[in-house]
Write a protein that binds this DNA or RNA. Structure first.
Length: 459
RNA sequence: GUGGGCGUAGCUCAGCUGGUAGAGCAUCGCGUUGUGGUCGCGAGGGCCGCGGGUUCAAGUCCCGUCGCUCACCCCA
């Protein structure tokens, strides 16, 4: 077989990288469950027409087809076409409708799965990656306090990763009602268009955004200036609310929608300041490209790694799902686990203490005596100590080297018969210190730190 | 989808105005004949991404193609 070339955008980690990823997944799941979110998994595919409901994303969807149908491609009716899901929200919305009769609302669910997007890959941007979503969905209505809770759960989940070396996170929040109310208040009705331009602020700067607002959205210079003034407001205390209101008043742009949005944003900021100080920051330029958000919107950056983009985003959507009679509003966020993990690994922020689970390598004196080593391994495993037996009865130096290369901290030597024929005690060697002591497989314990591989900040 | 950069050993790379391929690290072996790491010596490993062209001669120049990568777009 020819040497395979790596496929860009489809990340694969080495065993120690996977240990890091697995740890992140375990931590997220634990935090979600701690907050009462129930886990579900949906199928990898959805009917194409479902996936395309979001509009412009169509080009990103990977189609699923059978090789046998290839010749007849094009004849297949589009409603039968399947595509791989490109996020977890669309499948979840479908799942909610399908199971509405059996689900209890408000529904709190988490979902950790791969998703696929046919984008051009880049650092931190993949074509196959893992997302970890939480959402709360109501039937008919969803109280605002869930818009406060959801980002705080994520703050806690990401905060729990600080101990392995994840940099602090900053959750930037805004409210669509504030933006829309303000824009309409100053006479700009192309809310989406304005948001799209404002979203580019960090990349191209205020001058160019101002220009685009005029040319693309039909804004006057004064209107553009007002939009930029709004976008420049940020802060982690409720003072920003007064700032926005003052700006709106100076432009005669106070609308009912704006006031509603400001009330919501204020509640979020106030609660966050108390429950997760310094993490949640109001930032009036956060827009989010997706058009289905209707209330709070969230974007999360790693402090010191802002260039990586958002590692956790989401918001409130009044119509997550609707079957024509009932609508299901929701609020949720999604962590880009692969983006997070790829940065943890590439920036060498974290490391696994070893690349294999084994805490102990049991040496094999000779193939005739392999059963002796197997028995030792069984005894240790019965007490939940991860063990492997040496692959060959090579010279002990080789066997120690085998352990060393994988980071296995202990090598176990089964007792051997001396000249008098008496079998001596087993010994276990800590290959980091070189210390070697008598040991009994029925009672010996590694330290808690050595028992399983751990993920720790890189030294 | 648009535009730039780059493809040489497992990895990181060197290879001048063309003259039939190198280093470091890694791997394996020996020194050390059943207790590793250091050190020394040695070995294996390459259709120089692929295809075509120019030339007596191409890793080197030209064209194409594929892949990787960065930026835009978009997003986790």
């Amino acid at each position: 077989m020819a040497k395979p070339t790596p496929l860009s955008g489809f990340p694969e980690w080495l065993p120690d990288g996977r240990i890091v990823e697995q740890h992140v997944l375990d931590t997220l799941r634990h935090t979600f469950e701690l907050h009462g979110f129930a886990g579900i998994e949906t199928r990898a595919v959805e009917p194409l027409d479902q996936l395309l409901r979001k509009g412009e994303t169509s080009k990103e969807v990977y189609l699923l087809s059978r090789l046998q149908d290839e010749d007849a491609a094009g004849r297949a009716s589009s409603e039968k076409q399947l595509g791989l899901h490109f996020d977890l929200t669309v499948p979840f919305a479908r799942y909610v409708l399908e199971n509405a009769g059996k689900l209890a609302f408000p529904l709190r669910r988490y979902q950790i799965q791969k998703v696929w997007r046919g984008e051009r890959p880049q650092e931190g941007r993949f074509r196959e990656f893992i997302q970890a979503d939480i959402d709360v969905v109501g039937a008919g209505e969803l109280p605002y306090h869930f818009e406060v809770e959801a980002p705080l759960v994520m703050a806690e989940a990401l905060g729990a990763l600080a101990e392995i070396g994840l940099p602090p996170v900053r959750i930037l929040v805004n409210n669509r009602k504030v933006a829309e109310g303000f824009y309409r208040g100053i006479g700009l009705d192309d809310v989406e268009g304005v948001l799209r331009q404002i979203d580019k602020l960090d990349k191209i700067g205020p001058d160019k955004v101002s220009e685009l607002l005029v040319t693309e959205c039909g804004a006057t210079d004064d209107q553009a200036k007002a939009c930029l003034a709004l976008a420049s407001i940020s802060g982690s205390d409720v003072g920003v609310i007064a700032e926005v209101r003052a700006l709106a008043e100076s432009h005669g742009a106070v609308t009912e929608l704006l006031e509603t949005g400001l009330g919501e944003l204020e509640a979020l900021i106030a609660a966050a300041a108390e429950r997760a100080p310094g993490v949640v920051v109001a930032d009036l330029k956060i827009a989010r490209g997706l058009d289905y958000y209707t209330g709070s919107v969230y974007e999360t950056v790693l402090v010191g790694h802002e260039q990586l983009g958002s590692v956790c985003s989401g918001g409130r959507y009044d119509t997550l799902a609707s079957d024509g009679r009932n609508t299901y509003p929701g609020v949720g966020l999604s962590i880009g686990v692969s983006r997070l993990v790829s940065r943890l690994l590439s920036a060498e922020l974290v490391q696994a203490t070893r690349s294999v689970p084994s805490a102990v390598l049991v040496a094999v004196a000779s193939e005739e005596q392999r059963a002796v080593s197997d028995a030792v391994a069984t005894a240790l495993r019965s007490r939940d100590i991860p063990v492997e037996v040496a692959p060959s009865a090579a010279k002990f130096g080789k066997q120690i080297k085998y352990a060393d290369r994988r980071g296995i901290p202990f090598v176990w030597f089964p007792g051997s018969a001396g000249e008098d024929g008496v079998v001596g005690p087993d010994q276990v060697k800590d290959i980091r210190s070189g210390e070697q002591v008598d040991a009994d497989a029925a009672t010996w314990e590694p330290s808690a730190e050595d028992r399983w591989p751990r993920v720790v900040p890189a030294s």
